[in-house]
Design a protein around this nucleic acid. Structure first.
Lengths: 201, 201
DNA sequence: AGTCGGCGATGACAAATGTCATGGCCGTAC
DNA sequence: GTACGGCCATGACATTTGTCATCGCCGACT
């Protein structure tokens, strides 16, 4: 039996995926968690062969959890499953040690197929997405630029950003300005949107 | 047998939900669609008892599809299923004739239960969400304010908004200004975020 | 030893944004 | 028929935002 861990924060989707995987006679979903920071303990406790990780989760992202698993349980294979086919996500997932990267709007058959392939030592990546990830290059933002952009995403003003980030207003505006230029945006709002779309935020 | 139509744009989730529903011995998923504008034809073609509709779909939202179904096939029961528990969504869904409103992070067991309940003539609504919907009141934005806010959501400048909406820049700014005040926001970006969160966009 | 890039800051300037008062044109409700 | 509210517009004003030049401090790389 192939022992599977499922990490996904939406119960209904998680249990539905479990039902789907349960249709395969040699699959067994031995653990389900709803938070990224519960992945490691569950994987340890249930002698898991493959971890299926959603990216957007409370506590810790699936990508961060993948990195933890690689360090602590290197033999375990990781499949990252996500709603958003953002090239930046693919890049980070692979850098964190994932063996497969699937988007949720791929056909369901690919899920079981991916599990079998990663156990056979293969990597599974959507070719279109891989091309997009390579075409777009790496994240051009520095860490601070990312911080400021992330903080600006909710509509905070410069004064508030300066406050929460312990910076001067001028510095906040400088970082936003360079971020806007690097992303070829016309203002902070568009910069946020672009960075989000590419998975750079 | 209870004949079910499943409308959800992400294949993997859709097929997983089908697998989940398939575990109930008296349920039969007779049609699956990935677009809102395919719901009516599929419902007609397969003699459906219950339609499970996701809200976020290409072509037409699940809420719009619910309204169409009520008009064209009034006997059919509608269950709206969504990722986001936004009170405004609940309100619109009920106004469009849905019999149940479920969020995807509810336990999977509630899905089958909701299907049975709506067929028994009951309505199914998360009480917490219902309270939130009543507490927050109705959408305070006029149609034009909504239009402008929606158009501004991607970071367009006033000049571009004026262009695409065939308005003067001053009018655009007036609408945004009133929207910002109604939503108690401090700028357009925050107004967009608030309106999105409440399901008013 | 020198160069480069990230980080933080200041000051000045131009452009975009948000606010307010005011007006006209509608349709509906009282 | 008048009052109200939605829609569209203008002009004036203050504030916020975006850009640019310039500076200092560090650490890394050559």
């Amino acid at each position: 039996m192939i022992r599977i861990l499922l990490a996904e924060d939406q119960s209904m989707v998680r249990e539905a995926l479990a039902a789907l995987l349960g249709l395969e006679p040699d699959f067994e979903v031995v653990a389900q968690v709803a938070r990224g920071d519960e992945v490691l303990a569950a994987a340890r406790a249930h002698d898991v062969d493959v971890a299926l990780l959603d990216i957007e989760m409370p506590g810790m992202t699936g990508i961060e959890a993948a990195a933890v698993l690689r360090r602590e349980l290197p033999a375990l294979k990781v499949v990252v499953l996500t709603t958003f086919g953002r090239p930046g996500y693919l890049r980070s997932a692979m850098e964190s040690g994932a063996s497969a990267f699937l988007v949720k709007d791929a056909p369901a058959a690919q899920l079981a197929a991916a599990v079998r392939k990663v156990l056979a030592g293969e990597r599974v990546i959507d070719p279109t997405l891989a091309a997009a990830a390579l075409a777009e290059g790496a994240n051009p933002l520095t860490e601070r630029e990312r911080d400021v952009l992330r903080a600006a995403a909710d509509g905070s003003t410069n004064a508030e950003l300066a406050e929460t980030l312990h910076l001067s207003q001028g510095t906040v505006r400088n970082y936003l300005s360079t971020a806007i230029q690097k992303l070829a945006a016309r203002n902070r709002a568009e910069a946020v949107r672009i960075a989000r779309d590419k998975g750079w935020l």
